[in-house]
Write a protein that binds this DNA or RNA. Structure first.
Length: 127
RNA sequence: CACGGCAGCCGGAUAGCUGCGCGUCGGCUUUGCCCGACGUGAGGAAAGUCCGGGCUUCGGAGAGGCAAAACACCAGGUAACGUCUGGCGGGAGCAAUCCUAGGGAAAGUGCCACAGAAAACAAACCGCCGGAAUUUUCCGGUAAGGCUGAAAAGGCGAGGUAAGAGCUCACCGCAAAACCGGCAACGGUUUUGGCAGGGUAAACCCUGUUUGAUGCAAGACCAAGUUAGGAGAAUGCAAGUGCAGAGCUUGCUUUGCAGACUGCGUUGUAUGGAAUGCCUUUCUUCCGCUCCAGAGGUAGGUCGCGACGAGUUGUUUGGCGACAGACAACCCAGAUGAAUAGCUAUCGUUCUGCUUUGGCAGAAUACAGAACCCGGCUUAUAGGCUGCCUGAAAG
RNA sequence: GGUCCCAUCGUCUAAUGGUUAGGACAUCACCCUUUCACGGUGGUAAUAUGGGUUCGAGUCCCGUUGGGAUCA
């Protein structure tokens, strides 16, 4: 599973209106990918974007939060992510302070929950 | 010893595992958003965006004037500016040292609340003195004393006088001149004058100096796609309107002028318009010019954009210094939902507790993240190091 | 990344460089009423912050902090 970077504001807004899971340290949002120029789709590609608002702190703290999220995602996503999906990770007030192992575990559980919701919705649409 | 002063520096280290951006080179049984190797990868403030410049576009930023803004002791340094450097004057401190937007109020205008007799042409409330009057008061002299206030036509002492006064004198202050020192600001000495005159210019202002605007979302190129015009201005012609004149047929014709409207054209070399605060002007250039509406659309890619530079480091020369010169070596982040990291271990530093003085345990380890690039300023900053100086006490 | 603007009681606001920074709503106490509301009287409460100019600063000048707007 290849994980590519999500860049367009439009995709972030769509993910915010989709499925959501809140855990300690981060918020995970997800939505079905839409095809667009410069954004190819296939069965082994998903997209991920990171958000850290001014609530987190000054610039170096926001950078640090995004880095920890990126490191955690690198451990979890190749194994558990769904293809053809846009994911958005949002940093929370404790993203910088929480233990890294807990952050990874929370991300894994959030990802499982969101994937289950999306699978159930898809099955219902098919039936 | 000091919660005294100044100047400068550092801003944790090592190892392992897993990773990221960029560059170079290589690989091909997937020419890829692929794989591998090597190299390289945040700061003293990268921050605030407060000044100044490079660079960019506005046709060339040329000339003159106006407006607006900034600055204002002297000398120096710089690409330029500055709260830069060195001095001078003023202020604070026992001192080292620190602070200081510091031209002009003898060009003009304004303002100076309350209080006070009086707040700026000088005047005279109480008082003092002389005279008239003898009780209140009136006339004259005076500005030493008094209350007010941030500020009241120099301070203090002596002489002098009816009482007083730079009226006179000594000292201090002030002003002018001469001489001396200094590039200068200015300082010092001497002599003379005999008191000139309130404050405020970070109030208007005057004088001098400087400044065109823009700000990498600048700007250049490539690719793709959509659209509908209208109004105004200038000018030509035509018809109609108003005013004036002429003609006789007395309500028609004709001529001239006027500015607005309507219609049809034109905008060419002319007219006109434009060149970024406004006006004028010069050369050159461009074109129709100005305004309103409409369509598409939240925006792709490449360059600008990384080093040949006001470059970095070191040595050295000159200078009190800011800084300048010479020589040598080096090439050193370049992203764009944005890399420079995540985790672990050991050590270092500081603090606290215990202690067998060997250590052990715990906690803390700052401020903060490049986005075109430089020079300053300002603000944030755990902890630490170095040098010089001042004061006090003791030897 | 750049360019601009603003800041006065809890809220909305006023102010010529000159008394103790005024007013309305809100709030607190008291009065009125059987009680509540209305009404009346009185009180609490602010110049974002640090300097400078001035005799005197909310006002003038400089820095800082916080908030907001805008860009093709």
């Amino acid at each position: 599973m290849k994980v590519l970077i999500l860049k367009k504001r439009r995709d972030f807004i769509r993910a915010a209106k989709g499925y959501k899971s809140i855990v300690s340290g981060l918020i995970l949002q997800a939505a079905q990918s839409l095809s667009a120029p410069h954004k190819p789709l296939s069965d082994d590609i998903c997209y991920i974007g990171y958000t850290a608002t001014k609530k987190i702190g000054k610039a170096h703290l926001r950078n640090r939060a995004k880095r920890r999220l990126r490191a955690a995602a690198a451990k979890v996503f190749p194994q558990f992510a769904r293809a053809r999906t846009d994911y958005v990770l949002i940093a929370r007030y404790n993203t910088v302070d929480i233990e890294f192992a807990a952050l990874v575990e929370n991300l894994r559980r959030a990802l499982e929950r969101v994937n289950a919701d999306m699978a159930a919705h898809a099955a219902k649409a098919v039936s």
